[in-house]
Design a protein around this nucleic acid. Structure first.
Length: 963
RNA sequence: GCGGAUAUGGCGUAAUUGGUAGCCGCGCUAGACUUAGGAUCUAGUUCCUCUGGAGUGGGAGUUCGAGUCUCCCUAUCCGCACCA
């Protein structure tokens, strides 16, 4: 029989669908195992060969676990909300739901062709109301929670309310936007608006004026991880810092837990480091610097004013020669003197209007301006000038620093530029000071000794840091503290295609007569709050997000339903939030939903989550290190605090599949004759041609299909070629996989040509799963040949049906099988799938050579191979008379007794250099072995009368003779 | 600048974790069968000045023995980046 994948593969795909072969139950006596892939965003371009790489690996592992008796949850879904669908809608007017639906159908079809063992019954899509209901629900829980630092967990906001009513903020340690102090009396006397404002300071999902990344072109704000080098990740548009009222998630409350949690995860060290870096913990001190009274304007009310700075080098406090505030600092207006006012305002204005890109590109350029005001160094009582500069960032620490130019390179550059004094307070040795005026750079090192520093002088830096903080704390002018680089996650997007916020606003008059909108959560039992239809996906003329076009977008509090915005009366009907949630909202908890996807009374049942616990194996790209993988961990920890899930971390083990790059092909057009193309290796080609990208689909093994090239584009219709060996050889280069470089490899074409099983094996054969590598189809023929050989083992071309030999295999045949079982099992356990494929090739070659057609060998081999090539093995399994799917089979175990050898071919080395080999019994003693080796004729020849100094005998390894 | 990873034939890679470097595959060479070959099979394929020698980016070190461990370079890739 011929190996006909094109009939085999659809047949079994249909069988699996009809028999619900991969449907998983939440009730099982078997141990559980949860294998998860990062679900894809269904883009219009369809799947390319990079997507399935991780899916194939996880599918192999899921199938392997299943064969080993585990109840395996292996789901797939779609991250369906996103910008491209919305931008497409802007261009075409097509509803994003429609294009998303089409793209999902296409993805689903492509995935199905590859024979994955997903339980599609559990498919989730983030844009389904039945799914985003729970995204909204979690948001409400975050809104209704605060983070208690003493309990080190999230607690209900009503507990905070009770606390404030009973004792105010005294003794309260909670994560907040800005520290506030209030007594119980003040709280009890406060009106609703004031109380809501106070609570907002603590909520885990909160609304606040914060500096955001505003992208004009996209018309939306972006999270930090969505901005790279001052440009938006999507589209690459410039991004500006801007102060806006936005919803944020208080991720920073969890900074320490996010850091600590990493220690117990089976993730790669590099990814853990990426997260540690992103969280960026640094220990130091917060110190209050009072303003120098004489320097204030007489009319100012700056009496007793002070401002807080953060430093990691409290030991250098005697070296402070100036202070710097960020341009956004609220104190600037108060302290700036009249003489300096115009200059400061101009600078602040300039800094504000600079794009992030400009700012980052000009990091080296020093800019700043003197405020005219002075602070007092609390330890020396010196007058210290206060400057403003944008090298101090608003978002980190307090947005104010003490500058120690001698020991901080940025302060050093600033001091040099503005001719400010530089004072050395740390030296390599206590007596090794020098004149800073002669320095080329600052001494930033945290080693050495304090000098010129009063009571710190003579101490080692590390000791001085401790002593300085102790003193600061004793003086009540500061305290030990920890700062994180991690920022709260900005959660509003001024876009249409995302989850609506379940929030409406009541207009309230505050005590001072101002009218403010107070956000309230829509009752949980009214969820989901469905995304309304709009007639236009652009911002409204008044600059509001697209939801501003929705007519049905007001909340009727009495009737508990959405109603027409025309009915808003601010008594019972209120406007609903117009922004939507960001992409990471839907992907932060999707792995929970797979556990219990059809539950409409809860996110997931307690029974389901207690059974599955969390994800055992997560496979996906490392590019989500600072985005999704942080948010999902935050989301999980929050639900854990609520007592909803038993595990604090979502993903026990994580494998990062490497990015698949494109391998572009080039033809070389002659610079003299536009119609002439010169083959790559012809002499003179390099100087006389320009390379042009050519579609990789009309190139095979770097050989151009000339006819298809002529037909490819009209301008090549009459192309002429200079060939080498009768072929046109193309050049190649590794580039990003992209349409414009004609190097996108679509899996469908390869499935059609070689079959899904071959493609699966080949993708694994390409190299280690974690390594980034260019896609290269050149080796797939070898795998295709192997598949034919494998098939011929069971069903040689000249036989009509699969019939195997029932007799007992020989010792050698058993050995081949058991070696293979051992190797494949080891390989799968350590995710080394490329070596597995090699092992199969060796096994099949050996069996073919032995002409082995024994059932006892070939049947277990099918099971071994079934995770890798599910279709062909299923076909043969049934051809051998099995009635159940091979998925129901049991993973074979190897028998050590078939593998033992009684002798071993020892390499005999002289001074580590191997000269020949010699067979020795395995159970030989050291003395006997040395004796045998030394009396061997070959050894004597190599020794040539020299006396060995020593003979090293390592059983099953080597014999080394030291001369 | 800070942090991390990687470096092995013409190419993708492998090496029982310190023990015969180059498994498996691609490509290439020769041969067989063929009207034909982008089919199949067989043999060969690290390099060189080839009875020998060299060799895992470069240099040192530890060891009887190093691709593997240590130190110093170099190159490439990735992440962060005025984070006080």
């Amino acid at each position: 029989m011929e190996y006909q994948f094109s009939t085999i593969e659809p047949r079994w795909q249909q069988y699996w669908r009809e028999h619900h072969t991969y449907q998983v139950d939440n009730n099982s006596e078997r141990p559980h195992y949860y294998v998860l892939d990062m679900f894809p965003y269904p883009s219009g371009a369809g799947l390319h060969v990079g997507h399935p790489l991780g899916y194939i690996a996880s599918d192999i592992f899921a199938r392997y676990k299943r064969l080993n008796g585990f109840n395996v949850l292996h789901p797939m879904g779609f991250d369906a909300y996103g910008l491209p669908a919305e931008q497409y809608a802007l261009q075409t007017g097509q509803h994003p739901a429609v294009t998303t639906e089409q793209n999902i159908a296409r993805y689903r079809e492509q995935l199905d062709k590859l024979g994955f063992s997903f339980d599609w019954n559990r498919c989730v899509r983030t844009c389904d109301p039945s799914y985003y209901k729970w995204t909204q629900w979690t948001f409400i829980q975050l809104f209704n929670s605060y983070y208690d630092k003493k309990a080190d967990k999230a607690l209900p906001i009503y507990e905070l309310q009770q606390r404030l009513a009973a004792m105010g903020t005294s003794g309260l340690e909670a994560a907040c936007t800005e520290p506030i102090t209030i007594t119980a009396d003040e709280w009890n006397a406060a009106d609703e608006a004031r109380r809501q404002q106070i609570l907002m300071n603590y909520r885990l999902a909160y609304l606040a004026d914060i500096p955001v990344n505003w992208c004009e072109e996209l018309g939306t704000v972006l999270a930090n991880d969505e901005v790279v080098n001052g440009l938006s990740v999507r589209g690459g548009y410039p991004v500006k810092r801007k102060l806006m009222k936005q919803w944020s998630l208080r991720v920073t409350a969890y900074a320490q837990r996010l850091l600590d949690g990493l220690d117990h995860l089976e993730w790669t060290d590099s990814l853990k480091d990426i997260q540690r870096n992103w969280i960026g913990r640094s220990e130091g001190a917060a110190v209050w610097f009072p303003l120098d009274k004489q320097s204030l304007r007489p009319d100012s009310d700056g009496e007793g004013l002070a401002f807080e700075i953060f430093t990691t080098r409290p030991d250098t406090i005697f070296g402070v020669t100036f202070m710097v505030l960020c341009p956004e600092h609220e104190l600037i207006g108060t302290i700036t003197t009249d003489e300096q006012r115009a200059e400061v305002e101009a600078y602040v204005n300039w800094a504000k209007n600079r794009s992030e890109r400009e700012r980052q590109a000009e990091v080296k350029r020093v800019s700043g301006v003197f405020t005219g005001a002075y602070a007092t160094n609390p330890l020396t009582q010196e007058r210290i000038p206060i400057w403003v500069s944008d090298y101090v960032l608003a978002g980190y620490g307090t947005g104010a620093i003490m500058a120690v130019p001698a020991h901080d390179s940025r302060d050093f550059a600033f001091a040099r530029h503005f001719h400010l004094p530089i004072r050395q307070v740390v030296a390599p040795q206590p007596d090794e000071t020098s004149d800073p005026a002669t320095w080329q750079e600052s001494m930033d090192s945290k080693t050495g000794y304090s000098v010129n520093s009063d009571f710190l002088t003579g101490m080692k830096v590390q000791d001085a840091m401790r002593a300085a903080i102790d003193r600061v704390e004793a003086m009540h002018i500061g305290h030990r503290t920890v700062n994180y680089r991690l920022r709260d996650a900005i959660f509003s997007r001024q876009r249409y295609w995302g989850e609506p916020f379940p929030i409406y606003y009541k207009q309230v008059h505050t005590a001072d007569g101002q009218e403010v909108g107070i956000p309230y959560a829509i009752p949980e039992d009214c969820l989901p709050l469905e995304l309304p239809e709009v007639k236009d996906y652009r911002p409204t003329s008044s600059g509001e997000p697209p939801l501003g076009h929705a007519t049905q977008w007001a909340w009727d509090e009495t009737n508990r339903r959405v109603t027409d915005v025309a009915h808003v009366d601010n008594k019972t009907v209120f406007p609903i939030e117009l922004s939507t949630m960001p992409g990471f909202a839907g992907s932060s908890g999707y792995y929970f939903r797979y556990m219990d996807p059809h539950n409409d009374t809860a996110y997931f049942s307690t029974q389901a989550v207690n059974y599955w616990q969390n994800v055992d194996l997560y496979v996906g790209g490392a590019e989500h290190g600072t985005g999704h993988l942080i948010y999902a961990r935050f989301w999980n920890k929050f639900l854990f605090d609520l007592g909803l899930c038993p595990q604090d971390e979502p993903f026990k083990k994580l494998i990062n599949q490497g990015m698949i790059q494109g391998r572009s092909n080039f033809v070389y057009r002659s610079t003299k004759d536009n119609n002439l193309f010169i083959s790559k290796n012809l002499p003179g080609r390099e100087e006389n041609t320009t390379p042009i990208h050519v579609d990789i689909n009309i190139v095979d093994n770097d050989v151009l299909d000339i006819e298809r090239f002529r037909a490819w584009r009209p301008e090549f219709k009459d192309a002429q070629f200079e060939l080498e060996d009768g072929k046109y050889i193309c050049g190649w280069e590794v580039e990003k996989m992209s349409k414009s470089m004609y190097n996108v490899q679509n899996p469908d074409d390869l499935v059609a040509r070689y079959g899904a099983d071959t493609l699966r094996l080949y993708e694994m054969f390409l190299g280690p799963i974690e390594q980034a590598k260019p896609w290269d189809t050149n080796g797939i023929e070898g795998v295709a040949r192997f598949m034919k050989k494998f098939w011929n083992l069971y069903a040689p071309v000249d036989v009509a049906e699969v019939k195997l030999d029932a007799t007992e295999p020989t010792a050698e045949e058993w050995k081949v099988l058991h070696k293979t079982i051992k190797k494949i099992t080891d390989d799968i356990e350590r995710f080394s799938f490329n070596t597995s494929v090699s092992t199969f090739m060796i096994c099949v070659n050996s069996l073919a050579e032995l002409k082995c057609r024994k059932q006892a060998v070939l049947q277990p081999l099918l099971v071994l191979m079934s995770p890798f090539a599910p279709h062909i093995t299923e076909e043969l399994w049934h051809a051998l008379g099995q009635k159940e799917s091979i998925t129901q089979a049991t993973w074979p175990t190897y028998d050590e007794s078939y593998l033992v050898e009684n002798d071993y071919q020892y390499p005999i080395s002289f001074n580590g250099k191997t000269r020949f080999t010699m067979r020795l019994p395995l159970d030989i003693s050291q003395e006997a072995a040395v004796d045998m080796v030394l009396h061997n004729a070959e050894t004597q020849k190599w020794l040539s009368d020299k006396q060995p100094k020593k003979v090293i005998f390592v059983p099953k390894r080597i014999v080394n003779i030291v001369l």
